[in-house]
Design a protein around this nucleic acid. Structure first.
Length: 594
RNA sequence: GGUCCUGUGGUGCAGUUUGGAGUGCACGCCGCCCUGUCAAGGCGGAGGCCGCGGGUUCAAAUCCCGUCAGGACCGCCA
């Protein structure tokens, strides 16, 4: 047996025992006659003392940070006045009798401890030496937090009667909408597997198979550009249930998410509120609203219905009030205007609330107490009505976006709302909510076909099937998203389990019977044999862990993540392969375009 | 595909706006001293392709162009 105790787990109870611990040298403090070593292992740190008479004293003087040691000695209480309350093990120390060097170490390329000024190491360097980065408290803590969260979620799924089933990672393309990662087949040259964007079709087949309640902690792949909250490969809690409605799924998911949060935060959240997609867009300009703060959108189109101001005339005119930002500088205002334009708006109208609607106190040039470059184009009645609708007070700022396209105006203003109002911390407080009644289709594509908002297996509202072909954009779906602090955690839907309806939707999407049969005929075939009504959900394990860890990047909760350009500085993936490997796959590389 | 930020001894930064000697801070590293420290302390020392390439200039870490890498965002990701 290499050790008897974890170094970081020693407490006053062990005083008097002789123990053997193993770990890494965190610090060495050499006082000449006596040497202190902080020995770190997975549980924490403990102080090793080499007294002037100790056999290991000479060896201890050679020690450097990150050397690996095995130390045997007696746990003893620290002398009066030397207890270290900053250390959990700070009441005790080990008087070393045997000190064994298991491995020497070169100085690490960056500090392992996260003392002030050394916490922010370049991402590239951290990832190149990820095994050292993972020794640091932040990452060690995050990986454990993630495990505890997933562990609690798994227990909750088990308690609810779910069966975990693994599905293939070498499969064929699923119609999720993102680019597939392709894997060439050696046994069948010129054919390709695709890595799943989700186990969508397999879990529906498991419902046909009568499994009733399936879940999986599933690895998924999407070949799209990365973001702070998007990785090429990521993990979902994927689930599907038979003979259920939307509420049943939401309840099951909510239990799992709340258990995960409880496990790492120790808080029991109450039931998540639900709002419809239309309400989310109208009030927050986003289908994943951050509900931790107000600054809701106000539709003031009616106020300007007959305005003489052309920028507002015959447009959807939306406004938000920004509390206390009436003192924003011109360059800040210009910056937000640039942001609005970058997001596709024609411009941004700002108004400083400088005084009362009428009477004294309003500065020169203001109308209805509003100071703005465009105030002179609007009537006092219009601006007074605007103030009333937005509900601002003196010292506030009003931002107005006008656009012929109401959705675009909502989205732009929704972004500005986040830019100006989002709380600094990503994880406090926690505000989760359901967004329901997504439209079945989000737009009409360039080919004249509707574009699915979720995926083509999503059930429409029962009452809306009549207008599927006639007015597709008005069709509501039985699809629902879960949102945490303005981040989309996951989405799900009631599925179409009727073969005829499925073919209607596919045909509307321009996927004819032959193409449908070729791409997912196996699902349509399965529906011939008695498909139960079913519904499901999937949410991002990485994203939930990220928020609960208080991190703003997925990289901080993934052991070996990719950079923004999709590379791994540690393994240097992706990499070229041997000509022989390509030949075995019957693949020839074409020259890169300049 | 696009916009923006960053790149300076091993690490984290300042210096770049207004061109003038590789100047500075903290940590780390190496050596010596030191018996109660805990981010120990004291004394001494080493360490630089200012990401890379080109241009402007008498002179470039600093200005310009390109490029690479990392990051944030838009497009994309149902």
């Amino acid at each position: 047996m290499m050790r008897t105790h974890y170094a970081g787990a020693l407490r006053a109870e062990q005083i008097g025992q002789t123990v053997t611990v193993c770990g890494w040298v965190a610090h060495r403090r050499d006082h000449g006659g006596v040497v202190f070593i902080d020995l770190r292992d997975v549980e924490g740190m403990v102080q090793i003392v080499l007294d002037p008479s100790a056999d290991g004293l000479e060896a201890a003087k050679r020690l450097r940070p990150e050397w690996v040691l095995r130390v045997t000695g007696a746990v003893r209480a620290r002398p009066d006045g030397t207890v270290n309350l900053d250390l959990i093990t700070g009441e005790v120390e080990i008087g070393a009798v045997v000190l064994e060097i298991l491995a020497e170490a070169e100085p690490p390329p960056f500090p392992i401890d996260e003392r002030e000024g050394a916490a922010n190491v370049d991402d590239n360097l951290r990832l190149k030496y990820r095994y050292l980065d993972l020794r640091r408290p932040r990452m060690a803590r995050n990986l454990r937090l993630r495990h505890q969260m997933v562990s609690a979620i798994r227990r909750t799924m088990d308690d609810q009667g779910f069966t975990e089933v693994e599905t293939p990672t070498l499969t064929r393309s699923t119609p999720e909408g993102a680019r597939d990662f392709l894997v060439p087949s050696r046994l069948q040259p010129h054919l390709f597997y695709a890595l799943p964007q989700s186990p969508q079709l397999f879990k529906q087949l498991l419902m046909v198979a009568g499994l009733d309640r399936y879940y999986q902690v599933a690895r998924c792949w999407r070949d799209e550009d990365l973001r702070a909250d998007r990785q090429l490969d990521f993990t979902q809690l994927d689930l599907e249930m038979s003979f259920v409605d939307q509420d049943d799924v939401m309840t099951a998911v909510e239990l799992a998410v709340r258990a995960g949060i409880s496990a790492v935060r120790g808080v029991e959240l109450s039931e998540f509120p639900r709002i419809t997609w239309d309400e989310a867009m109208s009030r927050f300009g986003s289908d994943k609203p951050d509900m931790r703060f107000g600054m809701e959108l106000h539709d003031v189109s009616g106020v300007f219905a007959a305005t003489g101001f052309n920028a507002f005339k015959d447009k959807a005119v939306l406004a938000i009030g920004v509390p206390g930002r009436g003192d924003a500088s011109r360059s800040q205002l210009d910056g937000w205007t640039d942001r609005a334009k970058a997001l596709g708006a024609a411009g941004l109208v700002w108004m400083r609330v400088r005084g009362p609607v009428s009477g004294d106190g309003a500065p020169e040039g203001s109308v209805a107490g509003l100071e703005s470059p465009v105030a002179k184009f609007c009537s006092a009645d219009e601006l007074a009505a605007l103030r009333g609708a937005v509900g601002v007070a003196e010292g506030d700022l009003v931002l107005v976006i006008a656009d012929a396209d109401r959705r675009k105006a909502q989205q732009v203003l929704g972004h500005l709302r986040l830019d100006l109002g989002k709380p600094e911390r990503i994880d406090e407080p926690l505000a989760l909510l359901w967004v329901t009644d997504f439209p079945l289709f989000e737009a009409i594509g360039a080919d004249g076909r509707p574009v699915p908002a979720h995926h083509p297996f999503t059930q429409a509202h029962e009452a809306d099937w009549d207008i599927l072909e006639a007015d597709p954009l008005a069709v509501r779906s039985q699809a629902y998203d879960l949102v945490i602090n303005g981040i989309e955690l996951g989405s799900g839907s009631v599925r179409i389990h009727q073969r005829e309806r499925q073919q209607r939707v596919l045909s509307l999407l321009g996927i004819g019977p032959e193409l449908a049969q070729d791409r997912f005929g196996f699902l349509l075939d399965a529906f011939r044999y008695g498909a139960p009504p079913h519904a499901g959900f999937a949410f991002g394990i990485d994203r939930l862990a990220m928020v609960l860890a208080g991190e703003t990047s997925l990289r901080e909760v993934i052991a070996f993540p990719k950079t923004q350009s999709g590379g791994d500085p540690l393994t240097e993936a992706p990499a070229a392969v041997d000509a022989e490997q390509l030949a075995a796959l019957s693949i020839a590389l074409r020259p890169l375009k300049k």
